[in-house]
Structure formats: structure tokens, C-alpha cells
């Protein structure tokens, strides 16, 4: 039927009054979202930049404009640099660990073996726990005095290790705990990618006499490369936001060995009520994350080209 119209085509000729009423009715669909989005996301983003230019302490005195003073302070703030260094260290360790470990697991449970669905279900299960539950359980398993891990070590004759109370080990152990908790999600992304590789590629290679290692090296990994890149960078971005694990398991300690940027933001904003300086910390972290997001867009664009 030539005159049939799809939902987004107006009934009347364009430019008429009826036409605008139709458009308005369409626009109403996005109004609830846009209202909430503007109030709770868009406006706060700009207001945050504005606030970062003030010495702004709620419950104390009225805000005082200080220009880029907060940022100048930030550059000289050793606590900021310490927390940023810890956060970057943690994020890289966890992203790399997750990207590699989840890949190994995904490759294993992608094989046609009995019980693989049970393995998948079990491996995704930690993802549904809250960070509080995860922190409580793994924090206790890693406890120096009464933890299971040290119990097993001593049973084999080795000395107890202060997993979470040694400045050198604390961030790697938080990273291991986080990988236990989160690797199920990248595992599913890898599985989705693996299912997209046509079985005929493998059959052709097998006929040519390729063994399992060669299949992995010359077919699976090259075809999966864009997804590995994607997982690594999205993991990196999401683990920059670490807060709950050290908040629950170490309180940033020992000393400040696991003190992270978001903990610093929490302390500045909600312990000392310095909202202007807190905004500057948030924007500082956002700029670091933005840098890696842009990196992702570049890599992801390049990855999409390669896949074709």
C-alpha cells in the first residue's frame, strides 16, 4: 500500500499544525527521561565544574571564589598523587588479570565437555554478590591470624603471610579478590565473541592438520583480538572507580597503602565537607578516566575495521 505510514510519519502533510501536534506527541515519549537526565546528570556535570572553582565548605561558611586554586592545591597534594598512583596500579593489575584469566576460563568452558553449563553458572555466581558480602568473606579468608589461606600455607609448612596488612601485598590481593568477584562478566563477553567465530574456519584448519594449540594461536586469538582489547579497556575504566573493596577490607591501610581516589573524594566531601575541593578531585579523576575512554574509542574503531 503506497500511502501506508510507519509510526514515525505524520498523517498530514509536513509543516501543518496537525503535523506539529504529532511531533509533540512523539516528543512526549522522551520527556520523562530527558527531565531526569538533565536534573540528575547534565546539570550536575556542569555544576561540578563550577563548584570546583570555589572554596566551598557546607555547614561552615559561604562559598568563596578562588579560580583554579583547588586545582593548584591538587597538583601539590601528596595524598591526591598517592591515591591516584594506588588507583592506577590497582586498575591496571585488575584489568589485565581479568582480561587474561576470563579469557582462559572462557576458552575452557567453550569446549564441548560434559558439565560446562554448570561451570559457567558457578563462575558467574560471584558477580551477583554485593561488594560488602565479597569484602567480608574474602577479607576473612585472607585474614593473617585466622584465615583459611594462611591455614593451608602453614599446613604445607610455610610461614603465614600478612596478605592484607603488608603494604606491598595489599593492592595485588585486593586485585585478586576483585578478579574472583568480577571475572564472570568478561567471561560471558568472551563466550559471546567465541560463538561468532564460524566453525568452518576450525574445520578447514583441522583438515590441514592443525593441532589445538595452532587453532588457538592462528584462528581464535587473532579473531578475538578486538574483543580482548574491548574487555581490557572497559575493565580498566570500571576499576578506576574502586571504592568498596578497600573501604570494607582494609580501610585504605595499612597506613595509606590501599588508599584510593574515590575514598579521598568520600573523605573530603563527606567527612570534612569540603565540596569545592572534592569537586576538583572528582574532575581530576574524570580527566584520567576520559583519557582512557578516548583510547578505547580509538582502539575500538580500529578493532572494528580489522574484524571486517
Amino acid at each position: 500500500m503506497h500511502t501506508s505510514y510507519t509510526p514515525d510519519q505524520p498523517t498530514a502533510r509536513p509543516g501543518t499544525w496537525k503535523d506539529w501536534r504529532w511531533y509533540f506527541g512523539n516528543f512526549l515519549f522522551v520527556v520523562p527521561f530527558l527531565t531526569l537526565f538533565i536534573v540528575f546528570t547534565l546539570a550536575p556535570i556542569f555544576y561540578s565544574i563550577y563548584m570546583s572553582l570555589f572554596d566551598w565548605e557546607i555547614l561552615a561558611r559561604s562559598p568563596r571564589f578562588i579560580g583554579l586554586g583547588n586545582y593548584a592545591d591538587l597538583l601539590n597534594d601528596s595524598l591526591w598523587w598517592l591515591s591516584l598512583r594506588n588507583t592506577i596500579y590497582f586498575a591496571f593489575l585488575t584489568a589485565a588479570g581479568n582480561a587474561i584469566f576470563a579469557l582462559a576460563v572462557a576458552l575452557s568452558v567453550n569446549q564441548p565437555i560434559r558439565g560446562r553449563d554448570y561451570f559457567r553458572v558457578l563462575f558467574y555466581a560471584p558477580v551477583v554478590l554485593s561488594v560488602a558480602v565479597m569484602g567480608i568473606i574474602l577479607g576473612w579468608i585472607l585474614n593473617t591470624q585466622f584465615g583459611v589461606l594462611n591455614y593451608l600455607l602453614m599446613w604445607t609448612g610455610m610461614p603465614a603471610v600478612p596478605w592484607l596488612s603488608s603494604p606491598r601485598l595489599v593492592i595485588p590481593m585486593l586485585s585478586v579478590a576483585t578478579i574472583w568477584w568480577t571475572f564472570g562478566f568478561p567471561m560471558l563477553i568472551y563466550l559471546a565473541g567465541l560463538q561468532n567465530i564460524p566453525e568452518t574456519y576450525y574445520e578447514a584448519a583441522r583438515i590441514d592438520g592443525a593441532n589445538a594449540v595452532q587453532l588457538l594461536r592462528y584462528i581464535t586469538l587473532p579473531l578475538l583480538r578486538p574483543i580482548i582489547m574491548f574487555v581490557a579497556i572497559t575493565q580498566l575504566i570500571s576499576h578506576f572507580k574502586i571504592f568498596g573493596q578497600p573501604y570494607i577490607m582494609t580501610e585504605g591501610g595499612p597506613g595509606r597503602a590501599s588508599f584510593m581516589v574515590i575514598m579521598y573524594l568520600y573523605q573530603t566531601g563527606w567527612r570534612f565537607y569540603r565540596m569545592g575541593y572534592g569537586s576538583a578531585i572528582a574532575i581530576g579523576l574524570a580527566l584520567v578516566i576520559l583519557f582512557f575512554t578516548l583510547l578505547q574509542l580509538r582502539f575500538f574503531g580500529a578493532g572494528a575495521d580489522e574484524a571486517n
Binding site: 537526565f37 540528575f40 546528570t41 547534565l42 546539570a43 550536575p44 556535570i45 555544576y47 561540578s48 563548584m51 575504566i237 578506576f240 572507580k241 574515590i262 573524594l265 566531601g269 565540596m275 572534592g278 569537586s279 572528582a282 574532575i283 579523576l285 574524570a286 578516566i289 576520559l290 575512554t293 578516548l294
Partner: peptide, 13 residues
């Protein structure tokens, strides 16, 4: 807006 990390909005919100 997806690119801006949510942490920026915490204090104003």
C-alpha cells in the same frame, strides 16, 4: 554523556 564518569555528579547531586 556516557563518556563522563558518574563520579563527577556525586557532589552536586
Amino acid at each position: 554523556a556516557l563518556m563522563v564518569p558518574t563520579q563527577v555528579t556525586l557532589i552536586p547531586t
